[in-house]
Design a protein around this nucleic acid. Structure first.
Lengths: 232, 232
DNA sequence: TATCTATTGTCTCACTTTATGACAATAATT
DNA sequence: AATTATTGTCATAAAGTGAGACAATAGATA
């Protein structure tokens, strides 16, 4: 049947990506809005037949953020029967004046591979893709209702980020190259959604032997200047 | 093209499962041998178009072990371009006198979802499937060379089991309902591949508040009888 | 029946790690 | 020179862990 498949892509398989950034105060993620539909969604896409999953996701992240080689983790498959929503896909295609017949394959069942990415907020210039008219940062507590099961994907990504990721990976990817101990602490407070004790945090981080101390940062404030650190 | 797809299954997607069992001494996994090929592989299969991934894997585990509702965790996708091996698939089909044309789809590229299962060794009566002539338990240190990237899947499953799983889940699923503290310790020693101190282990487990103490177990040995425990 | 053996449950003491608060140092302002 | 806000570090208490000691005990032995 015409359009029931696309020769370029592996059928029934997609990826979605929760792209985390830290603006100095709160943890944020990138969310797309599809033109004239009111639908919000995670950045995602399909895997070409001659492409590894990893390549596909890196390419998708680069298209939306301009960043290459970001930290990416593939954390779970979402494969229930109920998750696909052919009616929503049809509306998105219609709103973009795409030929429904030709794009019929997009209304099939999709099993998606959930990823999250950690990126340096300052480096990003978010760009919408060809089906969406906006892409923007949303604080983790202000994420709107997303399409299909994308809210579940966000929740699970955050859970994995909280539980399974090393201090070094978090700090290296969400902060600039040099940072103060306070900034590092604020990243963890934003991720864990709880205040941490300053002295314990500092002692713990220094004992992990993953930090290198550099010059002081003079912010022009009337108090002792903090050291800058980088990861070893 | 005839046989390039199978109408029942989602194309290009499979699952594989590392089924862990504990025989009282060592940690073992179930491995299949395909008829007349010398190929060893993990139990795995395909996902029907009207079936969730979870259902598919549970069904596959049940067919090989007779066990329903076992603990299952879907821990990673394996999606590189190099992982598929159409020549090996062809040999397996030939050795089983299967029609190559009709089963052409099995020689496509497959992305597989790696799972592991924890089961009670005593409850299992392993059964080969229609393409394999043997299925058996192999101690984790004696796993033979497996097809494709299945050894990588085993290694990763063990890594996840070691790092990310709670005491309760491990004990509940790998041991009988009632067990002694020594048995519990042996499970952990087998998984971690290291000896643990008896007294520290006992104190730790009791402090976790996940155990209920029952009657003593009289084994007929000339020493103090241990208590039996179950998980709360 | 009394003694012996192997293993279990618990306790102790030393050591390490973590929590919490105290305090001096200091960059800029007043 | 005194003040303010924040930083780096130390002191002490509390909690957790490692390593061994020891009494309790189920059955074997004599």
């Amino acid at each position: 049947m015409k359009g029931s498949e696309n020769a370029n892509f592996i059928p029934n398989l997609s990826y979605d990506c929760v792209i985390f950034g830290f603006n100095g105060k709160t943890l944020k993620i990138l969310i797309l809005e599809y033109q004239n539909t009111g639908f919000f969604a995670l950045p995602g896409g399909f895997i070409k037949k001659n492409q590894s999953l990893k390549e596909a996701v890196h390419q998708g992240v680069e298209e939306r953020t301009g960043l290459k080689n970001v930290f990416l983790d593939q954390f779970q498959i979402f494969a229930s029967l109920e998750r696909s929503d052919p009616f929503a896909m049809r509306r998105i295609l219609e709103a973009n004046n795409k030929n429904i017949e030709e794009n019929n394959w997009m209304m099939n069942r999709f099993i998606t591979v959930g990823h999250y990415a950690l990126i340096n907020y300052e480096d990003v210039d978010p760009k919408p893709d060809h089906l969406s008219d906006s892409i923007g940062w949303y604080a983790i507590e202000d994420v709107p209702r997303l399409m299909m099961d994308h809210n579940d994907i966000v929740d699970k990504a955050l859970e994995v980020l909280r539980n399974n990721i090393s201090e070094k990976i978090i700090g290296m990817n969400l902060l600039p190259q040099k940072f103060t101990m306070k900034q590092l602490q604020q990243v963890f407070e934003a991720i864990l959604d709880q205040k941490l004790r300053r002295t314990s945090f500092q002692r713990k981080m220094l004992s992990l032997d993953i930090l290198e101390r550099h010059e002081k940062l003079f912010e022009g404030k009337a108090h002792k200047a903090p050291y800058l650190y980088s990861f070893t």
